[in-house]
Simulated scan of single mutants.
Amino acid sequence: MSPALAAHLAGAIDTPRLLLEPLTGAHAAAFFPLLQEDALYEWISMTKPDSLGDLTEAWRRSEQRVSPDGLFAWLAWAVRRRSDGRIIGRVDAEIDAKPEATNLGYYFFSPFWGQGHASEAVAAASEQLIARGVRRLVATVTVGNLASARVLRKAGFEFTRILPANDVVRGRAVDDEEYVRLAPLRY
């Protein structure tokens, strides 16, 4: 995956209520305190960052948007609310050479749950990726995470299957639901 193609795929995205901007180390200061919230980790395998410095450095290393082995584009967007500029969440995607999004993920902070922001952001990121040539997008959610499954369905994804013991959340193996969104066929 070339850095130029990865940068093209990771461009900024505007929606009526949101700005999705390519995630950089500079975003870490706004994210760090929000990432300390326990509710965020109920359904996802991510762990709390140890320090602002560690988070900043990790996100700086990923600014080139390409995996260390060069096989994948690693895209990430900070989601900001237009009305007040507040950081409300993140959307990310791993793109292979086909190009397919083998893993589209997202999280939003609890003060912003239930307001349609996640659906809007995931749909916008998916549409941008499709417009830029990605043909298939795959996302998974932990079985039982009904809110996240609704986000994916609203963003045009369809349930495809259960993946047994696909992830580990808080030290426990969990089953995931897989959702897929295909680009429209072009003739």
Rank of each mutant, 00 (worst) to 15 (best):
A30W: 00
A76K: 13
A121Q: 07
D69R: 09
L9P: 01
N103I: 05
A78P: 09
R80L: 09
I13C: 12
G133I: 10
I44P: 02
N145Q: 11
F157L: 14
V168G: 03
G85M: 11
E178L: 15
F112W: 14
A131S: 15
V138Y: 13
T15V: 01
L18R: 09
T24L: 03
A173F: 15
A149N: 06
G116H: 07
R65I: 07
F112S: 00
F32D: 04
L19C: 02
Y41W: 07
I95R: 05
L9G: 03
K48N: 02
R136M: 06
V143D: 11
I130A: 05
K98Q: 10
S67D: 05
F112D: 03
G116N: 08
W43I: 05
I44V: 14
V66R: 11
L182G: 09
G85Y: 13
P184H: 09
F157P: 13
I130K: 04
L163E: 15
V138I: 15
P111H: 08
S62P: 00
R181L: 13
A101R: 01
G116T: 02
L146S: 13
L18H: 07
R181F: 13
V168L: 01
A12F: 00
F32I: 04
P16T: 08
T142W: 04
A173R: 15
K48H: 04
A29D: 09
A147R: 15
G25N: 09
S119H: 07
D69P: 10
R82Q: 14
V169E: 03
G105Q: 05
L185Y: 01
A10S: 14
G144D: 11
P99I: 07
G133W: 10
V122H: 06
W59D: 01
R80T: 11
S51E: 02
D54G: 08
S148Y: 01
E94M: 14
A124K: 04
F31K: 05
N166R: 06
R90Y: 01
E63L: 10
V66T: 13
T142N: 11
A30L: 03
R86L: 12
W59A: 06
V143F: 07
I88W: 07
E120D: 09
V169I: 09
A26L: 04
F112H: 10
W77R: 11
R153S: 14
S148L: 00
I130D: 02
L34G: 11
R136L: 12
G144E: 11
G144R: 12
I44K: 01
K154L: 06
P164F: 11
A123V: 00
V79E: 10
A93Q: 03
S51Q: 03
L152E: 08
A10R: 04
D38H: 12
P49E: 00
D54R: 12
I87L: 14
F31G: 02
T24C: 05
G53R: 07
Q128I: 00
L71P: 02
R150Q: 13
T56Y: 04
V91C: 12
A73E: 05
L75Y: 03
F159S: 01
R82C: 06
R81N: 00
A97D: 15
R86A: 14
P3S: 12
Y107D: 12
F108P: 12
V168H: 05
T142S: 14
K98S: 08
A125V: 08
V174I: 10
P68S: 04
R170A: 14
L104H: 02
D96N: 15
S119A: 15
